[in-house]
Each structure stands twice: as structure tokens, then as C-alpha cells.
Simulated scan of single mutants.
Amino acid sequence: MQRYLFKVGPIDLAGPLLPGIVDFFEEGAAAGKGVLELIGNDVAAFCDDLVKDTPTYADAVQESISGRPGTDER
């Protein structure tokens, strides 16, 4: 998850997302659940769902490449 979120993840990971992830895992651990029980076998899909409504580094790169208005044209 860390590699995925740091490479592709949200621009503002330290915002409400990170504390929410920590709370999610703490609650799962308190209930005696393992990580894969909480997120499933597809870690990337879980991470995609976490960041689906937030701007990501991948979005920023794509916008800069496409030359959309509001970005530097190269």
C-alpha cells in the first residue's frame, strides 16, 4: 500500500485520508482481523477505491502531458 500510495496516490495524503486509513486498520486489528481480511487480495484495487475522489500524482502528470487548460504546455 505504501509504495502504491506514494507513487500514484493522492497529492494530499496527509489530509483526512491517512488518519482514516490508520483508524480503519486499528479498528480491524481490535476486531482481530488480518490485513487481507480487511482489504481483500487486490491491494491495488483497494488503494484505487481509497483515492477515487481525490487528485492524485498520476492525475497531475496526465494533465501536464495533455496540455489541458490551467497546466503548462510543453
Rank of each mutant, 00 (worst) to 15 (best):
T71F: 10
L17P: 00
A14N: 15
G28Y: 05
A58R: 13
S64F: 08
A30W: 01
N41D: 12
G9D: 00
D72I: 15
D12K: 09
N41I: 07
A29W: 06
D48M: 05
E27G: 10
D53W: 07
T71V: 11
A29G: 12
D42V: 03
I21H: 01
A60M: 11
S66V: 04
I39T: 10
G15N: 15
D53R: 06
I21N: 00
D12N: 13
Y57S: 04
P16S: 09
A30R: 13
A58E: 14
P55D: 05
E63N: 11
P55C: 06
G40S: 04
N41G: 09
L36F: 15
R68Y: 10
G40C: 03
G28R: 01
G20Y: 03
F46P: 00
L36W: 10
E26Q: 15
D53V: 01
S64E: 12
A45N: 07
M1Q: 06
V8Q: 12
Q62S: 14
D23H: 03
D42H: 04
D59W: 04
P55E: 07
P10A: 15
D49N: 15
T54A: 14
Q2P: 01
V35A: 09
G34E: 11
A60Y: 04
A31W: 04
D12Q: 06
G28C: 03
A44S: 11
P69K: 11
D53M: 05
A30F: 02
F24I: 01
G20N: 08
V35C: 10
A14F: 14
L13F: 13
L36A: 05
K52A: 12
E26F: 13
L50P: 00
E73I: 08
L36E: 12
A14D: 15
E26S: 11
V8C: 12
